[in-house]
């Protein structure tokens, strides 16, 4: 899916008149950003589910979505600054609220892992991480909503760009977005499966090690939740 999207990006969508080939990065940058932000919000919702149900699988879901969203957010910042460098001549533009807010959100989420890691009790870790996920998850739409209201002009809006441009732009953009979302979901599933497998393996190994399974060598403390 994503390959199709990229093929379309290069061969189907028209080259922007005043930005040239570099404008193509738009098809990566914007879907990445949208998916990352949705991932943060989803992480908050999963966190809420965790607090409500006390089921640690929700915490795992929250952790995985936020973890991957952080990775995507790094991608957003990198592609964004390449694009900004090419079209505005600067790596970063301060008078652009969209950028600044994204940077703030990224900085906030960058503390997610250290926060988890520095709480020793695993159960407290999950609960505190969920509280963080909810707070930050509410912070994200709040800030972007505020920015939307006090709109800056330099940042090309995905909506205006897709509706005002030729149809091929909006089609390619949509396909990129869907592709990115699917990629994200697949990655989440994959990481979840791998984590589950690790825990099952560990449990089996403990059982093999003998009846006194509770006193098997303690696992190294980790920021990742444990099932």
């Amino acid at each position: 899916m994503l390959t199709t999207a990229f093929a379309l990006v290069f061969f189907y969508a028209p080259v922007d008149a005043d930005q040239g080939i570099i404008q193509k990065i738009f098809y990566v940058h914007v879907p990445l950003a949208i998916v990352a932000l949705c991932g943060f919000v989803a992480g908050g919702i999963f966190g809420l589910m965790h607090l409500r149900t006390r089921d640690r699988r929700w915490d795992m879901r929250s952790y995985v979505t936020i973890h991957l969203s952080i990775v995507l957010a790094v991608g957003v910042l990198i592609t964004g600054s390449i694009w900004a460098r090419a079209s505005w001549g600067q790596w970063f533009v301060w008078d652009e609220p969209m950028l600044v807010v994204f940077l703030i959100v990224f900085l906030l989420y960058a503390t997610y892992q250290p926060l988890r890691f520095s709480i020793e009790d695993p159960e407290k870790q999950s609960r505190y991480a969920s509280v963080f996920a909810i707070t930050a998850g509410a912070f994200v739409p709040l800030c972007f909503g505020a920015v939307r209201m006090a709109e800056g002009l330099t940042h090309p809006q995905a909506a205006t760009m897709t509706t005002s441009g030729p149809a091929s732009v909006s089609q390619t953009f949509l396909i990129s977005l869907i592709g990115m979302a699917l990629l994200f979901v697949t990655l989440c599933k994959y990481e979840m499966a791998s984590k589950n497998a690790t825990f099952k393996l560990r449990a089996l190994r403990r059982r093999l090690a003998g009846e006194d399974d509770d006193f098997a060598a303690p696992v190294a403390r980790s920021a990742a939740p444990q099932l």
Partner: peptide, 8 residues
Amino acid sequence: YGERVVLR
């Protein structure tokens, strides 16, 4: 407590 059982 995490994976360790403190009461069973």
